[in-house]
Simulated assay, not measured.
Amino acid sequence: MQGYILQIQKIKDEDCIVYILTNSSLVKSYRFYGARHSKITQGYKLDFELEHSMTFLPRLVNTMHLGHRWLINRDKLFLWQQFIRLFYEHLKELNDVEEIYFNVLEECALKLDKQNAKRLFIEAYAKILDAEGRLHNCDFCFLCDYEIGDKVALARGFLPSHEHCMNQNGFDKDEIEEFFKTKKSLNLSDETVNRLYNILLDGF
């Protein structure tokens, strides 16, 4: 099996519970510490096997990290692990998951070596919101239900609102609507990308 390590929880000594996102499930497994066992790291793609138990979690065995060149870039790895944590918080109560989540991570991992991390992640965030039916148009404020003008403020999950309702500066509405439609950040300024990324960090 293959998947991305979303979370590692230490439980005793060096033993831990490891949450791995595959293309169909969020695997919760037990990893015991031993001299012959390689270190595992949050955010890495892992090839692994499970030894099932009648009384406890399946044991994580025969693990191998599947690396990417960008993993040695500390800045990109930091942003990647931030993004990965959002997936854990969003999916942690589930067992079976839609393939979209794994596919989006796979696409990001393959592109991250050559693309800007923040741009890549806000595009991925928009794709997931859209797949979940939660990427709204910018016509009406989610707080007061009145029509939005030329500027749109965005809350967690890119929910649109008036600047005064959110008490924050908005974005150019046409730019945001184009971004929501295309899921491409090419026409967005670096400042806009940074602001959208900060909203992303609030979670799905």
Rank of each mutant, 00 (worst) to 15 (best):
K76E: 00
E49G: 14
H68P: 04
E51Y: 15
K39E: 15
L77V: 04
L71K: 13
H37M: 00
E49W: 04
F32E: 09
H37I: 00
L60K: 05
N62V: 03
W70Y: 10
H52G: 04
G43Q: 02
H65S: 10
L50N: 10
K39C: 03
W70T: 06
G43Y: 00
D75V: 14
R31K: 09
T41I: 06
T41S: 06
E49I: 07
Q42T: 08
D47V: 07
L46K: 04
N62D: 05
E51M: 13
F32W: 12
L60N: 04
V61Q: 12
F78C: 10
T41L: 06
R36S: 11
L46G: 04
T41V: 08
W70Q: 07
R74H: 10
Y44T: 05
L66E: 01
F32P: 04
R36G: 10
L66N: 05
H52L: 08
R59K: 14
R31Q: 07
G34F: 02
N73R: 10
F32Y: 11
G43M: 03
S53L: 13
I40A: 03
G43A: 11
L50V: 05
N62K: 12
M64L: 14
N62W: 02
K76P: 01
R31W: 10
G43R: 03
G67V: 11
R59D: 01
A35R: 15
T41P: 01
Y33Q: 12
G34I: 00
K76N: 02
Y44N: 04
G43C: 03
R69F: 10
K45N: 03
L57R: 08
G34Q: 12
Q42V: 08
K76S: 01
D75F: 12
F48Y: 08
G67C: 05
V61M: 10
F48R: 04
L66C: 07
Q42H: 06
D75P: 09
K45C: 04
L66I: 15
L66H: 07
F32D: 08
R59E: 02
